[in-house]
């Protein structure tokens, strides 16, 4: 494996990992703060991708489509929290699984009714549609680099949000002690709504970013959901930084697995998870 080939794999691994982080961070925040297991989280990723594809056709611009799409996913998040999820806070995980499984069926069928079951490609914006040459016959698409950069910016924004804002303080407090937060008179309801909408938007946004790279297809939500579960388990529930580290680990493991041991590559991430469970069943970064 020569250097440039290796470099490309590393870049791919980082890019995949950062994308997983966007999905998993929302999942882990919703777990950690609201105590909700949300199987429909992958559906938001899938919806994001389909939104990007169809809105890009209407507006003619992926950037405009993403801007519109983010607004729509936030609205969807707020609506779902208000109408459905707030009834689940005090309930057993089992009913959360039941309800969110039902939602998957609903979203899948709606997607099929609105957009059909076909696979679609989404064009990279013209401005970003070039590759950086590495050697004579190896190059790296700039869009992928831009994706990673955007993901990093979002990770940084999340860090600022959690470390330095009043909302972030509530999130940190809420994750460690729900009763204390309520005792402090913080409006936990509002925190929940914001966190949920943020999670949905992050997953949707990840789907929009990924659309040009992975194309848009019906089962994309389920795939990303299960890998995100693995990320959350490895990182430790409720830990955003655990999710970042675990997402990068899984991104690398998956990318290099595909290159080095292609026959069993799909199983590799699960073996990594098994190893972590043996070593630290509560995840690497459990607070």
């Amino acid at each position: 494996m020569d250097f440039y080939f290796f470099l490309i794999q590393v870049l791919n691994g980082v890019q995949y990992g950062l994308l997983l982080f966007l999905v998993a961070s929302g999942l882990t925040l919703i777990f950690g703060i609201m105590g909700i297991i949300n199987l429909a989280h992958g559906s938001f990723y899938m919806l994001g991708a389909y939104l990007a594809w169809s809105l890009a056709q209407y507006t003619g611009s992926l950037t405009a489509a993403i801007a519109l799409g983010v607004v729509l996913t936030i609205a969807l998040g707020i609506a779902l929290e208000q109408v459905l999820f707030r009834h689940l806070y005090a309930r057993d995980h089992l009913y959360q699984v039941l309800l969110t499984y039902g939602l998957i069926l609903v979203f899948d069928e709606l997607r099929s009714m609105i957009w059909g079951d076909d696979v679609h490609g989404v064009a990279v914006p013209a401005l970003l549609a070039f590759s950086i040459p590495l050697t004579e016959n190896l190059s790296y698409p700039f869009y992928r680099l831009a994706m990673s950069a955007v993901c990093l910016v979002i990770a940084g924004a999340l860090w600022l949000l959690i470390r330095h804002t009043r909302l972030g303080m509530m999130i940190r407090a809420g994750a460690s002690n729900r009763e204390m937060v309520q005792a402090l008179g913080i409006n936990i309801r509002l925190v929940y709504t914001v966190v949920f909408a943020l999670g949905v938007a992050l997953a949707g946004f990840a789907g929009m970013l990924a659309a040009p790279v992975s194309s848009v297809f019906p089962s994309m939500g389920g795939q990303v959901l299960i890998i995100s579960f693995v990320v959350v388990v490895i990182g430790g529930i409720g830990s955003v930084w655990g999710a970042l580290a675990a997402a990068l680990l899984i991104g690398m493991a998956d990318t290099f697995g595909k290159v080095l041991v292609p026959e069993v590559s799909a199983a590799i991430v699960y073996l990594v998870m098994a190893a972590v469970l043996l070593w630290r069943p509560e995840g690497l970064f459990k607070r």
């Binding site: 459905l84 009834h87 689940l88 009913y95 959360q96 039941l98 309800l99 499984y101 039902g102 939602l103 998957i104 069926l105 609903v106 979203f107 899948d108 069928e109 709606l110 099929s112 009714m113």
Partner: peptide, 16 residues
């Protein structure tokens, strides 16, 4: 053809 939608809604209602 869209039985999954009805099924999903029913499951959500059962959960609630």
């Amino acid at each position: 053809k869209h039985w999954q939608l009805a099924m999903g809604v029913l499951i959500v209602l059962v959960a609630l």
